[in-house]
Amino acid sequence: MATPYVLSRSGQSVLATNKLIRNTYTLLSMTLLFSALMAGLSMAVRVGPGAYLACTIGAFALIWLVLPRTANSASGIGVVFAITGLLGFSLGPILTMFLKMPGGAQTIMMALGGTGVIFLGLSGYALTTKRDFSFMGGFLFVGMLVVLGASLLNIFFAMPAASLAISAAVVMLMSGFILFDTGRIVNGGETNYVLATVSLYMSIFNIFISLLNLLGAARDE
């Protein structure tokens, strides 16, 4: 009589996965809204370009040093809001710069819309197919290291074409990460909604920044 037990375990697993998905997407939408508010605030107070770097470094320090210790407690939610708030605040100088350009508001709206379509499309695809994309892990992490190395070199060589190629590569890599992370949520590879939210948020954030760079360059042409 093992079948009822197996069915019950399977039912519990489905319920746990559904709860994880619901919690992740609720927290993700709240953090995206909070991020947008913080971006608006940093535009209103007109912070300098140095704020972008300072907030990004602060957010990554929280991700690397604080989040792993707090992810399993209630304080993890506060850390997620701190990370996404800092990253949202860092967007202020970039958005202000774009708004000063002719057609900059349209570029921002296109990047925002494009990011939304990419995230909803890929996440919906991974959720409905329930495929396991964990086989992409090695490829995605190596790709990210290559992109970071290329970005580091481009700080010194400052080649506009390389900057565009890096942005395009980041959009593709982060799209891969959306499939990978959503697949992990659906298939039980990730059971913590705080960590799942931060992973998905980082993909969305990077896609938005890179799309802004690509669309801004296309408009300049």
């Binding site: 296109m110 990419i118 197919t129 495929r131 499939l179 669309l215 296309a218």
Partner: peptide, 21 residues
């Protein structure tokens, strides 16, 4: 199963860049 949606993303980026010009 992974490359097909990523190709769709590449197509969307190309479309958005064409619109932005």
């Amino acid at each position: 199963s992974a490359i097909l949606p990523l190709l769709a993303v590449a197509g969307l980026i190309a479309l958005l860049m064409a619109f932005a010009r």
